[in-house]
C-alpha cells in the first residue's frame, strides 16, 4: 500500500517537472529527433548527472542497491531500433505520453491504445523471441566494472563530457 502511495506522489512530482520544462511536447520530442531542439536532452542528461552522483553516493553508504540491466546486444539493438522508429511516429515515449494526455494533447490516447497492443503482441511473441536474448549477452556489466576501476573515476569523466555537450548546445542555440 505504502509503495503505491510513493509511486503516485513520485509520479505527480515528475509529471509536474516534465510539463514545466515542456519536454512532453510533441514538438520538443520530434525537435530532438530532427536535431533542431535539444530541450529534452538537456532535461534528461541533467537528471542523469544528478541521479548518477546521488545514487552512487547513497549506494556507497550502503543505503541502496543498483538495478543493473543486462547488456544483451541482440535485444538491446533490435529493441532500440524498433523503439526509435515508434518514437518518431508517436512523438512521445511511454512516460511523456501520459504527461501529454495530462496537458490535453489527446492524440496520446491513440498512443496508449497502441502501446497496450504492442505489449500484448510482445507477450505472445516472447517465447519465440527468447533466443534473441542470448545474442551478444554480456550479463549485468557496468563501465567501471569492465574497466576494473572505482566508479568515482568514471563519474567525473561522464560529468565533464555532458557539461561540454551542454556548452556546445548553448553555443549552437539548440
Amino acid at each position: 500500500m505504502n509503495l503505491l502511495v510513493y509511486g503516485l506522489v513520485t509520479g505527480v512530482l515528475f509529471g509536474f517537472l516534465l510539463q514545466k520544462a515542456q519536454v512532453i511536447r510533441y514538438e520538443k520530442q520530434l525537435g530532438a529527433l530532427r536535431l533542431m531542439d535539444m530541450t529534452i536532452l538537456k532535461f534528461m542528461l541533467s537528471t542523469i548527472l544528478v541521479g548518477m552522483v546521488g545514487v552512487y553516493l547513497v549506494k556507497d553508504f550502503g543505503l541502496v542497491k543498483l538495478s543493473i540491466k543486462a547488456t544483451a546486444l541482440g535485444s538491446n539493438v533490435l529493441g532500440g531500433l524498433l523503439f526509435g522508429a515508434g518514437w518518431g511516429l508517436l512523438g512521445y515515449c511511454p512516460a511523456t505520453n501520459a504527461g501529454a494526455l495530462g496537458e490535453g494533447r489527446w492524440d496520446s490516447l491513440w498512443g496508449i491504445l497502441g502501446m497496450l497492443f504492442g505489449a500484448a503482441l510482445f507477450a505472445e511473441a516472447y517465447p519465440a523471441l527468447k533466443p534473441v536474448y542470448s545474442w551478444g549477452n554480456y550479463g549485468r556489466i557496468t563501465i567501471p566494472g569492465v574497466l576494473g576501476v572505482n566508479h568515482w573515476f568514471v563519474i567525473p569523466v561522464v560529468v565533464i563530457g555532458v557539461l561540454l555537450l551542454f556548452k556546445w548546445f548553448e553555443k549552437k542555440g539548440l
Partner: peptide
C-alpha cells in the same frame, strides 16, 4: 501513426529490456 508508433515503442522497449 500514433497507434502504430505506440505499438512499436512498447514492443521495442520490452525487447530491449
Amino acid at each position: 501513426a500514433a497507434f502504430a508508433g505506440g505499438a512499436a515503442v512498447l514492443f521495442g522497449s520490452r525487447l530491449a529490456g
